[in-house]
Simulated scan of single mutants.
Amino acid sequence: MTPPRILSIAGSDSSGGAGIQADIKTVTMLGGYAMTAICALTAQDTTGVRSVMAVDPEMVAAQIDACVNDIGVDAVKIGMLGAPEIAAVVADRLERLSIPIVFDPVMIATSGAALADAATIAAFERLMALATLTTPNVPELEALGGDPGMHARRIAYIAKGGDALGPEVIDRLVIPGQPEKLWTAPRIDTRHTHGTGCTMSSAIATLLARGASLEAAVEGARAFVRAALLAAPGFGAGHGPLGHQAVR
């Protein structure tokens, strides 16, 4: 069977736990064909982000065009963008496509480092309007105006509960005009959580490209993330990477 073609538009994580690297691993393990448009380079490890360098917006656009015009794309995952100008060119390119788009509004790394400034966050509006699903964690949802702000925009989103306190993780799928769908599961007690958001969003994009409904794609992605958390190899002194390669 021909694998679905997934384009990840995101930043590179030199330590391999998050960003483009986590996306490639996730897409591959779920049977997709991974392509990339790298928006930013980071020097980081499990303890924090050392340096960030945004890619020229024209180069980001050229990467997207190269993938779309030759290989073709069945779904898109958007992650770290690095600058408002990059967000604008990404929106320009994606407006031409009629495929599932999953937008992970990356603002803060697992280590706590800021990965988006106020201008970049403001530029997220066009991308959220284009996205099939937006995937904020607790602080990102708050920065976007919380549930009232998302409801006012009439945006479909999954409110991820991994950053909330408590023994259980509650994820909420909110689709305008439909009842909320809740998933509850015991929290996995581990410090190896680097790249959970990237993994979740790229898994949803891959499953949507394979024909799953939005609810089924979220459910499958949650199962994949939890399995990868349990399979974490234990690398690093801080927030270690997931065990993507061990998920079967």
Rank of each mutant, 00 (worst) to 15 (best):
R222V: 04
T47D: 13
V90K: 11
G112W: 12
L127H: 03
K181I: 15
F224R: 03
T196G: 02
V52P: 05
R96E: 14
R172E: 12
Q44G: 11
N137G: 11
I99A: 00
V55C: 01
A237Q: 15
G31I: 02
A223G: 11
G82E: 10
A205F: 04
E215H: 10
L94T: 02
T110W: 04
L208W: 06
M107A: 06
I99G: 02
P84E: 07
G32M: 12
A22S: 11
N69G: 12
G243W: 07
V73E: 05
M200R: 02
G238D: 11
P4Q: 05
G234E: 08
D70E: 13
G72K: 08
M35R: 07
I155S: 15
A10W: 08
R248D: 12
T193P: 01
G177T: 14
A113K: 11
L115V: 09
E168R: 14
E125W: 03
Q44L: 14
A88H: 14
T120M: 14
I6L: 05
G145H: 12
L207A: 01
L144R: 06
V55R: 02
N69M: 11
Q21I: 07
D56Y: 04
D23T: 10
V102A: 01
R191L: 08
V89I: 15
A216F: 00
A223E: 11
P139V: 12
I101G: 01
A87Q: 07
P179F: 10
T28D: 10
V247Q: 07
G32V: 02
V55S: 00
S98H: 14
A54V: 13
G17W: 07
T134I: 13
R126E: 12
D92F: 00
W183C: 04
L173V: 10
D171E: 02
P84R: 03
Y33S: 10
Y157V: 08
V52H: 04
S201V: 00
V89F: 07
R50P: 00
A185M: 14
A221K: 05
G17L: 10
D56C: 06
A246R: 13
I86M: 03
I121Q: 15
L214R: 09
I158S: 02
L207R: 15
K160A: 01
D56I: 03
P186N: 08
H192I: 05
M53F: 01
A212P: 00
P179S: 04
P233V: 06
M1C: 10
C67N: 14
S14N: 08
V27K: 09
R154I: 01
V76Q: 01
P3N: 08
D23F: 06
T120V: 13
Y33E: 08
R222P: 00
G195Q: 08
S201E: 00
A228M: 02
T47H: 07
G236V: 13
L141Q: 14
G234A: 10
T47G: 03
R93N: 04
I78C: 09
A116G: 11
I71W: 12
M29D: 03
G161I: 05
I71P: 00
G32S: 13
A205M: 05
